[in-house]
C-alpha cells in the first residue's frame, strides 16, 4: 500500500520534472525543433544539447538498473527487450519524423505546451490523440480480423 503511494508520487514528480526540463531546454518552442532539423539552413543546436544532457544522466540510471534485481518501489522492471529491427518500427519512426518536422512538436512538448492554451498546442495534441486512436483501432481490427479476410490480403504487405 505504502509502495503504491510512493509510486504515485514518483510518477507525478517525474512528469513534473520532465515538463520543466523540456521548457527550460527550449523544446516547447517549435522554432528550436524545426531549427535543429534545418541542417541546410540556420541550424539551431539546442536540441542536441538537451538530448546530450538527458542521455548522459539516464545512462547512469541504466547502469544502476543493471546491478539491481528490482526497482525500489515495484516488483520488476518493465522495459522493452526486443532487439530486432522491423518495418513497423522503422516505418512508424519515419512517419513520426515527418509530423515532427512539419509541426515542430513531439508528444512531450505538445502536452506541456497545453499550459499556454495556444491554439497550436491544442490542435496538435487533439490531432495527435486522434492519430494514436486510429493506430490503436487499426491494430485491434487486424488482430481480431477473421482468417478468411486476413488471407485475402496481398502477400508482402507491410505488417
Amino acid at each position: 500500500m505504502r509502495s503504491n503511494l510512493v509510486q504515485g508520487i514518483v510518477s507525478f514528480a517525474s512528469g513534473l520534472l520532465f515538463a520543466i526540463g523540456l521548457a527550460v531546454g527550449g523544446m516547447t518552442e517549435p522554432a528550436n525543433v524545426i531549427g535543429f532539423l534545418d541542417f541546410a539552413g540556420d541550424w539551431k543546436p539546442a536540441l542536441a544539447f538537451v538530448m546530450a544532457g538527458a542521455v548522459g544522466v539516464t545512462a547512469i540510471a541504466w547502469r544502476i538498473v543493471g546491478r539491481r534485481r528490482a526497482p525500489i518501489c515495484a516488483q520488476s522492471f518493465t522495459v522493452p527487450s526486443r532487439r530486432d529491427l522491423d518495418a513497423r518500427l522503422l516505418g512508424g519512426a519515419a512517419i513520426f519524423g515527418v509530423g515532427w518536422g512539419l509541426g515542430g512538436y513531439c508528444p512531450g512538448p505538445g502536452v506541456v505546451a497545453l499550459a499556454s492554451a495556444a491554439p497550436t498546442a491544442l490542435v496538435f495534441v487533439a490531432s495527435m490523440l486522434a492519430g494514436t486512436g486510429i493506430a490503436i483501432a487499426w491494430d485491434r481490427s487486424r488482430r481480431s480480423a477473421p482468417t478468411a479476410i486476413a488471407s485475402a490480403d496481398e502477400p508482402g504487405q507491410v505488417a
Partner: peptide, 29 residues
C-alpha cells in the same frame, strides 16, 4: 519558452499531429 510562432498554420499542425500520433504508436516510441 512557449512561443509557437514558428509552427505552421493550424491545418498543417493538425496533419502533423495525426502523423505524430500514428507514427509513434506504430513505431513504439
Amino acid at each position: 519558452r512557449f512561443d509557437a510562432s514558428a509552427a505552421p498554420s493550424l491545418p498543417l499542425v493538425a496533419i502533423a499531429g495525426v502523423l505524430v500520433g500514428v507514427g509513434t504508436r506504430i513505431g513504439s516510441g
